[in-house]
């Protein structure tokens, strides 16, 4: 397993994917800076909401697709699946390694996002201690909520040799997020909306699916993660190269 991870990392090290990690946290931080919080006691909550809007509603779900497609891209491009899978490595390890790489990239993105939030607080001089619990719940929650999406996107990316097609699909399913999160009925069950639901702080003003308790959300997330991951994993075991 370690071998496969190191080999995967070597392939990514010199690619442009590292730039993508920064884009969303930087934009979110700018949005956080632009948000006015003069006349509210909920400065951190409001800033986090402002930052999550762009990041969690749009960019983060899109990144799951971009990263998943990226880790399969080199194999699809140069006929690398044949070379890779004719090596003494098990297909399970290859699939798991790719999954781990993608979720690590997303974890780094979340760390940068949290860093951005703290930075905004410092720059604007928010009073009191840092609300660590809220920040971590949001960042980690959002990351966990992205896992089923990763599982789904990795499945599609492995199956489809095109780089653009899985991305296009991801965009098509991400855009309705804005509507879906308003729905208490569908929101929690829509994989593309889950990162947003997990990342937004819950306040009295919460709307739509944001009122769904975290426990319910996590059960749905873990359930779909297992389902999607096993489907992709099984597909890859049987795939003819």
């Amino acid at each position: 397993m370690g071998k496969v991870l190191r080999s995967e990392f070597l392939k990514l090290r010199k690619s442009s994917i590292w730039l993508l990690i920064f884009i969303s946290p930087v934009l979110a931080t700018l949005a956080g800076l632009g948000q006015s919080v003069e006349d509210t006691p909920y400065k951190w909550e409001i800033t986090l909401s402002a930052m999550s809007f762009l990041h969690a509603l749009l960019f983060f779900p899109l990144l799951t697709g971009v990263f998943s497609a990226f880790v399969c891209r080199y194999e699809h491009l140069g006929g690398g699946w044949k070379q890779l899978l004719a090596m003494p490595v098990s297909r399970s390890n290859v699939y798991i390694a790719k999954f781990l790489i993608v979720i690590s990239l997303l974890a780094i993105t979340q760390v940068l996002f949290a860093g951005g939030l703290v930075l905004v607080g410092q720059l604007k001089g928010f009073e009191g201690a840092l609300p660590w619990k809220m920040i971590l719940t949001s960042a980690i929650g959002g990351w966990i909520a992205s896992l089923p999406l990763v599982a789904l996107q990795l499945f599609v990316s492995v199956a489809w040799s095109s780089f653009a097609a899985p991305l296009a699909i991801n965009v098509v399913f991400t855009l309705p997020n804005i509507l879906v999160v308003n729905s208490e009925q569908f929101g929690p069950y829509y994989p593309w909306a889950q990162p947003f639901l997990a990342m937004m702080p819950t306040t009295e003003e919460s709307f739509g699916a944001l009122n769904v308790p975290m426990e319910t959300l996590m059960i749905v997330i873990l359930g779909s993660l297992v389902l999607f991951f096993l489907s992709g994993f099984t597909y890859f075991q049987r795939k003819e190269i």
């Binding site: 070597l10 392939k11 010199k14 080199y74 491009l77 140069g78 006929g79 044949k82 070379q83």
Partner: peptide, 24 residues
């Protein structure tokens, strides 16, 4: 098999390194 596989953005040496790691 059929045509050679390679990672275009890597050098020849790095391509072989990615395989060498897998082969120990």
């Amino acid at each position: 098999v059929e045509y050679p596989s390679y990672y275009g953005h890597l050098t020849a040496y790095e391509n072989l390194e990615a395989i060498r790691i897998l082969l120990d």
